[in-house]
Write a protein that binds this DNA or RNA. Sequence first.
DNA 1: CGCGATGAGTTGAAGCGTCAACCAATTCGG
DNA 2: CCGAATTGGTTGACGCTTCAACTCATCGCG
Lengths: 159, 159
Amino acid sequence: MTGEDDGVRWLAPDELAAWMSLAALMFKLPGALDYQLQRDSGLTHFEYLVMAGLSESPDRSRRMSELAGFANGSLSRLSHVVKRLEKRGFVVRRPDVEDGRITVAELTDAGWEQVVAAAPGHVAAVREYVIDALTPEQLAQLKEIGDAIHRKVDPGRSC
Amino acid sequence: MTGEDDGVRWLAPDELAAWMSLAALMFKLPGALDYQLQRDSGLTHFEYLVMAGLSESPDRSRRMSELAGFANGSLSRLSHVVKRLEKRGFVVRRPDVEDGRITVAELTDAGWEQVVAAAPGHVAAVREYVIDALTPEQLAQLKEIGDAIHRKVDPGRSC
DNA sequence: CGCGATGAGTTGAAGCGTCAACCAATTCGG
DNA sequence: CCGAATTGGTTGACGCTTCAACTCATCGCG
């Protein structure tokens, strides 16, 4: 299926190898990170990202759409997730005072404690799977590669 | 949250940058590839992988568990997906003659045409987003990096 | 002012993935 | 050989994500 001259630029062996390596990584890494967080802290990676995003913000609060962008998710997804987190007591929602369309989510004390408790394990997992698996040069290369791909996939965001 | 001596090895700025780059990539790339396949061929990336896996096999057929490994998915997931593909007429299932426990999935003619039609667009997307975004050196680096991470995440598979 | 257009979020239904329970066929120990 | 353990796969229920429809608030323009 790769030899014919059908006008398609199929992948050369080394290109294929690199792609397969990236593909395998893309499929396994999220699962591994999710598994660790779920097991040790009862949180999805996405839930963790949301709460971590809030924990770093002034007043531990942030508007929904901003938070969605930070966590790489749709507004709808965030809305559902925040509703669940609210039900669990980790977050509260309230309309913005200045612009009634805006909803700001705020981390509760219980939520704060939850993130603080979850963070070390998560960082350790990232370290184990990624950072400590690579040399410093590879880490620098990875950043360049990631940025290059990211620019192609999502050209709008790089402005 | 990074300054205290709490026994946790937090990420240094360059480590964080590399990780964020990889994280963004991991979340956006699958979506972008899925979107292209879904739009142009009505297939999930996973469905495509399954059918591509079959198309490369002798007799266009392969046993379920093998196929699941190839497509990086659980057997259960594959079973559901193959059931849907069967309903769409792209695949048929039958028990193995030698060992009745084994199920082999086989690509139908319609399925074959579907993959053949979908492949060029998918390869073009991979090229656009990944291969052509990188220099040959970066491609080689990516393979090494991916393999290194993969070894940490899933040590069993490398035997 | 008043009213249509736009923007921010929410909601409900539908589809997909995971998990655990399950079934069927085969193998192995006695 | 016969029954138990193992292997390969399927199923149903549940939870999460997506998509499209919707609500409500604000903005802009006549």
